[in-house]
């Protein structure tokens, strides 16, 4: 039984890693097509680095990810605090709205934002479809995730701590800054990290909300894949895989040390 389970796990891990390993191997393959390994080369990486557009797309992706994560984390944290601490009219509506970006398929989200932006551009004359609209779209789904993560952290906290702070004469914002926020910090960090990952990974919402010049790496990968399998995409994929593996390993090592 035990052995069967081990075999099963081995096969599943093989299933998970085989495709990635193949891509990594092929990115160093001299042959343009097919899977026969005919020789080692770094040509595909060279042609990738010689393409200035790839760097631009990379920077665009980072810009969108950082700005949207920053805004979404601030908005989401405040919203979570408000939802947990206060009662106000419309609270249950907001709670339902929070779940929409989480559960609704991203195609639906993409087209509804497209409709909104098209209408706004027609009536108000802005916003232009650009990196700006992409950022707006990303913040929208990020806010929901950040709020939910931070809220679940806040719900675990002991409200007595804040009361104690108030009893000791702390003002509202002082309580928030010196008590609530430090206690909620792991939730805020986890929410921000999740938001960042979601933004870096997002293709669908970006696809519907991007305008000219607003190409991000996922959009570039999509259009390259649409044009056919190419070793240059293998190389780009390998770099992205390596980069995410590095950061994940870093996070893993850091959390391990603390435990």
């Amino acid at each position: 039984m035990r052995r069967l389970l081990t075999l099963h796990a081995l096969l599943v891990y093989l299933f998970l890693y085989l495709p990635i390993l193949v891509i990594v191997a092929l990115s160093f393959n001299e042959s343009r097509r097919g899977v026969r390994f005919i020789g080692f080369t770094l040509d595909w990486y060279r042609s990738l680095f010689q393409d200035p557009r790839v760097l631009e797309y990379f920077l665009n992706t980072l810009l969108v990810a950082f700005v949207s994560t920053l805004v979404a984390t601030v908005l989401g944290t405040l919203l979570a605090v408000g939802l947990v601490r206060y009662r106000f009219p419309g609270k249950s509506l907001l709670r339902y709205l929070l779940y929409i970006p989480v559960v609704v398929p991203d195609v639906v989200m993409g087209v509804s934002l497209l409709l909104l932006f098209a209408l706004a551009r027609e009536v108000l004359g802005f916003p232009r479809l650009s990196l700006f609209t992409v950022i707006l779209g990303h913040i929208t789904f990020q806010v929901a995730f950040v709020t939910l993560v931070v809220r679940s952290r806040l719900l675990l906290l002991d409200p007595a701590l804040e009361e104690a702070a108030r009893d000791l004469g702390a003002r509202g914002w002082q309580t928030f800054w010196h008590v609530t926020l430090p206690l909620a910090w792991p939730g805020v960090a986890a929410g921000a990290l999740l938001a960042l990952t979601l933004s870096l990974d997002d293709f669908v919402v970006t696809f519907f909300t991007a305008g000219p010049g607003a190409t991000t790496l996922p959009l570039y990968i999509y259009s390259s894949v649409k044009l056919g399998v190419s070793p240059k995409v293998h190389a780009l994929s390998t770099l992205i895989i390596g980069l995410s593996a590095f950061f994940l390993a870093l996070g893993y090592a850091l959390t391990r040390r603390r435990v």
């Binding site: 098209a118 551009r121 027609e122 232009r128 305008g211 000219p212 010049g213 259009s223």
Partner: peptide, 21 residues
Amino acid sequence: DTFESPEAMLAKLKAGADREF
């Protein structure tokens, strides 16, 4: 910016991108 099918190109322009190109 590039497109792969003319239908997609026209749809993109009609979706408001005609102000951007």
